[in-house]
Amino acid sequence: MIDLSDIDKVKQLVGDCIKGDRNSQQKFYQMFYGKMLSVCMRYSENREEAKDILHDGFIKVFGNLKSFSFNGSIEGWVKRIITNTAIDSVRKKKNFLVEFEDNRNYDKRIDDFEENVEYEQLVQLKVEIVMQLIQKLSPMYKMVFNLYVFEELSHKEIAEELNINIGTSKSNYAKAKRNLVRFFEEYTNNGNK
């Protein structure tokens, strides 16, 4: 594995990848595989779908490596491409339906259902389990949830990204979170039995 802070080595690896050197490409793939698959998992319904997104994304990554200018971190660059690929892929889904805005104010109610969360149990919960619970969300909820929590976009940015309005983003997010909390409760209750 290459130390990503060693810019010369990264440059060499990227250069070799551009030349089409298989070993370097494999090294590059292997370097980012774990983190990027984790990203794809959050957007998809199962591992198979995540893998397909990851591979589509990596094709774009390798195809565009030439244009990477080493101004920012390569990991950030790769992640952005993979994330965009994931977003595009989810958008194309048939069941990617937008829930229209309702005028209830979700901002206040969000914290209500969070009060029920048993944090100690959540802390101990494996990432893989949380991932499964996120995957259970409907595509739209999952998308908004991902963009808000993990890509750290604001509702305004989410609205622009998904071409919906801000209220829709907020209500979808609130419902996504409510569902996730419910899945979490269900999981812990079943686990306790």
Binding site: Y119, L122, V127, Y148, V149
Partner: peptide, 9 residues
Amino acid sequence: FEKLLQEKF
């Protein structure tokens, strides 16, 4: 809740 998830992932 959100911070915890961010941290986990």
